[in-house]
């Protein structure tokens, strides 16, 4: 029972992270039907900016004095950085291909993914970069036998705040509604005066901001980041997006939670060396038996 509770706590934490990444995939897919392979790399870049910021603050002695300020700054800078990175990515690799075949677009995305991950490797080296140690060992408490670290609480609450913010943006604001309108019908949206390119850029920016936050969270949770850390979580988060029904925001969050849980429980009770396989198996099963996902957004029958 205690391990079960413990797995629940760990699964929720991991799930929250996957959910944040999955939101970016699902939004971008919803608006331009592209699997943005470089999304995982943006997540990794967020993790790097986090560690760079924190190390800098630590070296200047600021982190010791104001750890909260340091954390806020790390998140803020990572999000801003990834927003700019996303705009550059969209401009360079995706916008010129707006009218090209989907295969070209997909290959362009794959090229950028390889480019970014190798770029980060060349910039920051092959080895793990450690987050300042005092941050991720800030203490813990016990609930019914399960150990919950403060970091886990921060991650979960942070993710929740971001998701609520996203929900409000998408459903309440003029730009958020315009984003949904563009995803639903590009020609009609243009006839209403909505600039598709601008809306698509906004979509990329929002998805990347969420991924950046997830990157810093993962850095804090595991204590380090690495240039290729975006690859596997990227695929898992995409699996989560598909599981929830691609294009569906609530679905992405649910899917992320499920994938996180499944991974943690499978690693705990079945075989930990195969933990990365389960997400793929879920992805394949979902695509095979219920390609619209659990939340079932309508899917058009087009191919690459």
């Amino acid at each position: 029972m205690e391990t079960f509770l413990q797995q629940m706590v760990n699964g929720l934490t991991l799930g929250a992270v996957y959910a944040l990444i999955a939101l970016g995939y699902t939004m971008v897919y919803g608006i331009i039907q592209l699997i943005n392979f470089a999304h995982g790399e943006i997540f990794a870049a967020g993790g790097y900016i986090g560690v760079i910021t924190l190390s800098f603050l630590q070296s200047r002695g600021v982190l010791e004095a104001h750890p909260t300020l340091g954390l806020v700054l790390a998140f803020a800078l990572a999000m801003v950085y990834c927003a700019f990175l996303a705009v550059a990515l969209e401009r360079m690799a995706y916008r010129p291909l707006r009218d090209a075949s989907r295969l070209s677009l997909l290959l362009s995305a794959l090229g950028m993914s390889i480019f970014f991950s190798n770029g980060m490797m060349l910039c920051q080296g092959v080895y793990d970069k450690a987050y300042p140690i005092q941050l991720y060992s800030t203490g813990q408490f016990t609930v019914g036998g399960a150990v919950v670290s403060y970091i886990q609480v921060y991650i979960f609450v942070g993710a929740l705040i971001l998701m609520i913010g996203l929900n409000l943006f998408v459903n309440r604001t003029r730009l958020g509604k315009a984003m949904r309108a563009t995803a639903q019908d590009k020609v009609m949206s243009a006839l209403l005066g909505i600039n598709a390119n601008r809306t698509i850029t906004i979509t990329f920016v929002i998805g990347s901001v969420l991924a950046a936050a997830a990157g810093v969270m993962v850095g804090l949770y595991y204590g380090s980041v690495r240039f290729d850390m975006g690859f596997i979580p990227g695929i898992k988060a995409f699996a989560a997006a598909v599981l929830g029904g691609i294009g569906n925001l609530t679905g992405a969050v649910l899917g992320g939670m499920i994938i996180g849980m499944v991974e943690v429980f499978a690693a705990g009770y079945l075989a930990s060396e195969y933990k990365d396989v389960f997400a793929f198996i879920i992805l394949i099963l979902v695509l095979y038996f219920r390609p619209t996902g659990i939340m079932g957004e309508q899917v058009d029958d087009t191919r690459v």
Binding site: D276, V277, L283, L287, V304
Partner: peptide
Amino acid sequence: MRGDYLAIVTLGFGEI
């Protein structure tokens, strides 16, 4: 499946 899902599924299979 739709073509672009194929990309991600084959990626998954390769990893498996």
